[in-house]
């Protein structure tokens, strides 16, 4: 599996799209220096939020451009024949591609976090009074959970990648899952209130409850606001959300591997 992980890593780091996204994210991170001046009251919080959003957005863009095409390209250009004629099983292929992607994201997140930290160090030294509640650990905590979110999202991309050979359909399904996953807790909150119970048919409410258990709760990994206030989550919460992301990804990848094992590669 290692050869596949390293080849996937090389694919990621040699991709021109990745560099485009990097440049964009770095541009946005540096833009926070200018933008911070517009918000003199909450400058520190805005800067943190701006930097975290840039990293998160870069993660989503890399997923949409690089990850979505990863398996589709192998199937479309028949590179898969070359790979699977080596002693690489289909299960190893799915895991190898996924873990290779994670190494690309790890590289991207480390780089972007490093740059954003430098920007924050500069802003902190320039506007000392506005970073009273700033906490480096809280900042890194938000980046860490964003990485966990990307981990889950990419397992979903791999899952749809083995089902469909079209990267567009994969993107469509992934975006739909992401949107539902981002808003599902709000919807659940709505139907649990009196107004929601009145306006929704019981069948619809039930369907939403089922979806809640299938689609990952992406909002749970959003720690930007907490981080902007310099707050840290408890160790148990930290462990719970980490475990949730890992277990969800493993289940989705096992399903993907099961499907891919049966896939006809004619």
């Amino acid at each position: 599996m290692w050869p596949l992980i390293s080849v996937t890593f090389l694919e990621g780091v040699r991709s021109r799209i990745l560099y485009g996204i990097f440049l964009f994210a770095i541009f946005v991170v540096f833009l926070s220096i200018i933008f911070a001046n517009f918000f003199m009251q909450d400058l520190g919080k805005v800067a943190v939020d701006f930097n975290l959003s840039a990293i998160s957005f870069a993660g989503l863009l890399i997923s949409a451009s690089l990850s979505v095409n990863l398996i589709a390209k192998d199937l479309d250009k028949r590179t898969i024949y070359f790979v699977l004629s080596r002693p690489i099983t289909r299960v190893q292929y799915v895991w190898g591609k996924y873990l290779g992607l994670l190494t690309v994201f790890l590289f991207a997140y480390l780089l972007l976090t490093g740059i954003s930290c430098l920007v924050l160090v500069y802003l902190k030294s320039e506007y000392v009074n506005y970073f009273g509640s700033f906490n480096w650990l809280a900042y890194l905590q938000a980046v860490y959970f964003d990485f966990i979110k990307i981990m889950v999202l990419n397992s979903i991309i791999i899952f749809f990648g083995v089902i469909t050979t079209s990267s567009f359909v994969n993107l469509l399904f992934t975006v739909s899952t992401y949107v539902v996953g981002q808003s599902i807790s709000d919807v659940i909150h709505f139907i649990s209130t009196g107004r929601g119970q009145e306006s929704l048919a019981p069948a619809t409410a039930q369907l939403i409850t089922v979806i809640k258990y299938i689609v990952p709760n992406f909002e749970a990994f959003d720690f930007k606001v907490i981080s902007a206030h310099g707050m840290l989550v408890s160790a148990s919460e930290f462990g719970y959300f980490t475990l949730y992301g890992i277990v969800y990804s493993v289940i989705v990848l096992c399903l993907a591997a099961m499907i891919f094992k049966k896939k006809e590669l004619l």
């Binding site: 596949l4 080849v7 090389l10 024949y81 070359f82």
Partner: peptide, 29 residues
């Protein structure tokens, strides 16, 4: 041990020939 050449092969074009050979060789241990 098997060596396979697919019809109209398309490989990971971002690799160098040395990297392609290493991928192939290392996957065979």
């Amino acid at each position: 041990t098997l060596g396979y050449l697919p019809e109209n092969p398309y490989y990971y074009d971002y690799l160098t020939l040395r990297e392609l050979l290493w991928f192939s060789a290392s996957s065979f241990g």
